[in-house]
Design a protein around this nucleic acid. Sequence first.
RNA 1: UCCUCCUUAGCUCAGUUGGUUAGAGCAUCUGACUGUUAAUCAGAGGGUCGUUGGUUCAAGUCCAACAGGGGGAGCCA
Length: 478
Amino acid sequence: MFNNRIKVKALLAGEPAGQQATVMGWVRTFRNNQFVALNDGSTNNNLQVVLELGKFDDTLLKRITTSAALKVTGTVVASQGKGQKLELKADTIEILGDSDAEKYPLQPKKHSLEFLREKAHLRFRTNTFGSVFRIRHSLAFAIHKFFNEKGFVYLHTPIITASDAEGAGEMFRVSTLPFDNPPRREDGTIDFSEDFFGRATNLTVSGQLEGELGATAFGEIYTFGPTFRAENSNTARHLAEFWMIEPEMAFCDLEDNANLAEEFIQYIIRYAMEHNADDLEFLRQRLLEEEKAKPQTERSELDLIQKLEFVVNNQFERITYTEAIDILLQSNHYKKKKFQYDVSWGIDMQSEHERYLVEKHFKKPVIVTNYPKDIKAFYMRQNEDGKTVAAMDILAPGIGEIVGGSQREERLERLEQRMTEMNIPHEELWWYLDTRRFGTVPHAGFGLGFERIVQFVTGMSNIRDVIAFPRTPKSAEF
RNA sequence: UCCUCCUUAGCUCAGUUGGUUAGAGCAUCUGACUGUUAAUCAGAGGGUCGUUGGUUCAAGUCCAACAGGGGGAGCCA
């Protein structure tokens, strides 16, 4: 029986009234042969367990090492020391699991994030990762809560997909054919008709196309699942395996889409602020410490919590692509030739351009709409000007593109014409085109990279530190 | 994938123009102390200097390749 335990979070929230309590957790530090800082993952705050001198065996005390698992029963009393309101005066201590101090790699001190990345199986036991992953959980939960309250259906789109039409990037092949000697056709190409699914299949790069099938029946759906890109991207904001949220709404245009995206982002951030105040406070302090090493000019004006409050309490800026280009062209930054890449209408904005708009010009999240059709996907709705499509990107300070979405082309002829222009095989997407044949309606949706919003909320600068076990090129340990 | 920087003790790092036995703080271990907050004090152990090859009388130090990692860029979410 273990369920008589009280979690540290609950215990710390109560009053020290001399009541009995049993806690279980892992030792963070053992000071003075007398004070155990015990953490059970329910909160960043440790419980101070006090061991009366002489009350416990030396052999037991020797086994209270960093990260040993303990069961402690004792009396909850007001703390005599500073730093905590209450503490647990131990009556009995049971070592549930020993931890060899000479071999345990984490010390009660500050470790670099790079080092902890190589100890990803243990990094949850640190304050930073404890906070990050509790916040990650809250955001995931808030996402389901938000859509559920709005009547969206949670649709599970396939992980294995046969369509390569989305063009969202390089894909991971899924196959049971032998690598060393795959069956070949007469022309030497691999014969996938003999593969498991009878055709070439890959891991999904997006659930959007299937999402549209759901939206044109349920009205409003969302997906929230793993997504895979085999791009050789080595950056602080890319993963080969990441989680994406893709809502898709029928009877919805670009403006409705932008409104929903903004409301959604504010909702989930607000949820984390309400439910993870301690974790955010810890991360706020952590970032302040980190910024002390930087020159004053590079430090951020707002701390983490101020930044989140600002985002939650202010409307996102909304501009068209054309306006964005004008702002860039008229900026002093451009006139002084400080952009590495040139600016003109029709370019796919580089991250330096996006960063200028978001971090220098507006200093808040920006929704950019109506991009040139030539730099966007085939399924986006063509605007009447013949040049742009009803696309929408949300750019966030410090992260870049956090949301990419659009109103979809619901007119069959326009969609087919665009697919032809972009060399997208019609026959492969017959099922997608059927939505436009049978009761087509204006609809829209977007994709939000989950890890990027977790980065934004936690202030972690590397995406590998907001997913438990990151998959990146040349790296799939754990 | 491109540019750039890094790799020395368990961790964070120092190591001079190439020169004998490679250092510090923390951690660990031993002891002391005991209301501590990354406890403190004293002592001890701990190293194939990322790997391979080269230059040299002599390489942690110079050169090359490879591996891993950081930062920036591209691709994107």
